[in-house]
Computed example of a mutant assay.
Amino acid sequence: MIGLHSLREKMPVFQEEACEFALFKAKWPNGYRCPRCDGAAFYLVASRRKSLYECRVCHHQTSLTAGTIMEGTRTPLVKWFSALYLMQTGISATLLAEVIQVTYKTAWLINHKLRHAIQVCDESRPLKGDLQLYGDFYARPVMSGVFDPPDQRDQPAVVGASIDPESGEVAEVKIKRVPPNEFRRRLFGVDSFGTFLWRHVTDAKSEIQSIEIVKQSDSEGVTELGLIWRGVIGWLARTFGGIGPKHLQAYLDEYCFRINARPNSFEMLLSLCGLTQTVTLGDLVNKKKAVRSVRWSGLANYRQHKNAFQVS
C-alpha cells in the first residue's frame, strides 16, 4: 500500500486560480451560459467568499460551483482537485483525509460525490456492438467487527464488455450487481443476465451484433473479463479491506470508469464534475442496499424483449 509520505511527494501542486479556470471550462465547455436566460455575456463580481458570475442580460448571479458536483462545498478547490487526481488509482477516505488534511467525513463525502458523477454518466452509456458477459459472486472478506447477514454475503455481479471488432479487445466495460434470485450459481444461462441486458445494453437490435457468455478462464488461460474481475476484487481488498453491499455498486463503477477513461481519467472526471448536479450527504447515507440496477424487474423486461438479444 502506498504510504502517506510517498503520496504527497507524487502529488502535483494545484493552485486555486488554475483550479477555478479548469472548473470554468468543465462547467461551460462552450463558454459561459446564464442558467436563467442562456445569455453568453457576464460580469465577474468579487465577494469576500467567492466570485460570482452575473449575467449582463438578466443580472442573474451564479457561483462557479453551482450546478456542479461541488455545489455548496466549503472545501477549497485545490483539495477537490487533489481528490480528483488520487481517484485515478483509487484511495480510501481515511487516507484521503490525511493527504488533503480534511476530516474523514469530508473525505468520504468528496469520494462518494465523485463516484456519483461517474455513476450518472455510466447510466447514460449502454453497451453495444459485440458483447461478452461474465458472471460471478463478490464476497467481502471476513473481518473482525464486520458481519453481513447470510443473504448479503455473496453479491452476484455481471462483468459486461463491448469488444472492439478489429482488435478483439475490450472497448468499454461495466460491472453491475444483479438480483440474487435471478442469478444461479454455476448455471450461468442467459436468463441469469436478464437484468444486466435490460438495464445496461442498448435496446436497439441493430446496434447489438453478438453476445457471448464467457468463463473466468479457458484452455488458453485467464480470459480478459476474468482478469478484470480479479482486478476489481484485489483492488477492493487492498484499498478498503472489502466493501459491503450498500455502496458496492459505486466502487464497481469507479473501477470501470478508470478502465474506460484511460489514459485521460482525470480530465474526464473533471468534465463530469462540471456537468453533474450535486448529491447530498443524506442521499448517500440513506441509500438503500438494493442499488438502482436491481430495482426494476429486469428479468421480466428482458424476457419481453428477448428477441432483441442473440446469445451464444
Results as ranks from 00 to 15, higher is better:
residue 3 G to V: 07
residue 6 S to G: 08
residue 6 S to N: 14
residue 12 P to I: 06
residue 15 Q to M: 14
residue 16 E to C: 04
residue 17 E to C: 10
residue 17 E to H: 13
residue 19 C to L: 03
residue 19 C to F: 02
residue 24 F to Y: 11
residue 34 C to N: 03
residue 35 P to T: 07
residue 38 D to F: 11
residue 50 K to F: 06
residue 53 Y to A: 06
residue 53 Y to F: 15
residue 55 C to E: 01
residue 57 V to N: 14
residue 59 H to V: 10
residue 62 T to R: 06
residue 66 A to T: 13
residue 67 G to F: 10
residue 68 T to S: 06
residue 73 T to A: 08
residue 75 T to L: 10
residue 76 P to A: 11
residue 80 W to G: 09
residue 81 F to H: 03
residue 81 F to A: 03
residue 82 S to W: 00
residue 84 L to K: 01
residue 89 T to R: 14
residue 91 I to G: 00
residue 93 A to Y: 01
residue 94 T to R: 13
residue 96 L to D: 05
residue 102 V to S: 03
residue 106 T to S: 07
residue 107 A to Y: 03
residue 107 A to H: 05
residue 108 W to H: 06
residue 109 L to F: 09
residue 113 K to Q: 10
residue 113 K to A: 09
residue 114 L to D: 03
residue 119 Q to P: 05
residue 128 K to N: 13
residue 133 L to I: 06
residue 138 Y to V: 08
residue 143 M to P: 03
residue 146 V to P: 09
residue 146 V to W: 02
residue 148 D to Y: 14
residue 148 D to R: 12
residue 155 Q to V: 15
residue 159 V to L: 04
residue 159 V to W: 00
residue 163 I to D: 02
residue 168 G to F: 05
residue 173 V to T: 01
residue 176 K to C: 15
residue 177 R to V: 11
residue 177 R to I: 11
residue 179 P to R: 15
residue 181 N to M: 13
residue 182 E to H: 14
residue 184 R to P: 00
residue 184 R to N: 12
residue 188 F to Q: 12
residue 192 S to W: 00
residue 193 F to G: 00
residue 195 T to V: 00
residue 199 R to L: 13
residue 200 H to T: 05
residue 204 A to Y: 10
residue 206 S to K: 15
residue 209 Q to H: 12
residue 211 I to F: 06
residue 215 K to F: 09
residue 216 Q to M: 10
residue 219 S to E: 11
residue 225 L to V: 01
residue 229 W to F: 09
residue 231 G to E: 07
residue 232 V to R: 01
residue 232 V to F: 04
residue 234 G to C: 09
residue 240 F to G: 04
residue 242 G to D: 06
residue 243 I to S: 05
residue 248 L to F: 07
residue 253 D to W: 05
residue 254 E to S: 07
residue 259 I to L: 11
residue 261 A to N: 02
residue 261 A to L: 07
residue 266 F to W: 10
residue 268 M to H: 11
residue 268 M to F: 13
residue 269 L to W: 08
residue 277 Q to I: 10
residue 278 T to H: 12
residue 289 K to P: 01
residue 293 S to T: 10
residue 293 S to W: 02
residue 294 V to L: 08
residue 295 R to N: 11
residue 295 R to V: 07
residue 300 A to L: 15
residue 302 Y to K: 07
residue 305 H to S: 15
residue 309 F to T: 06
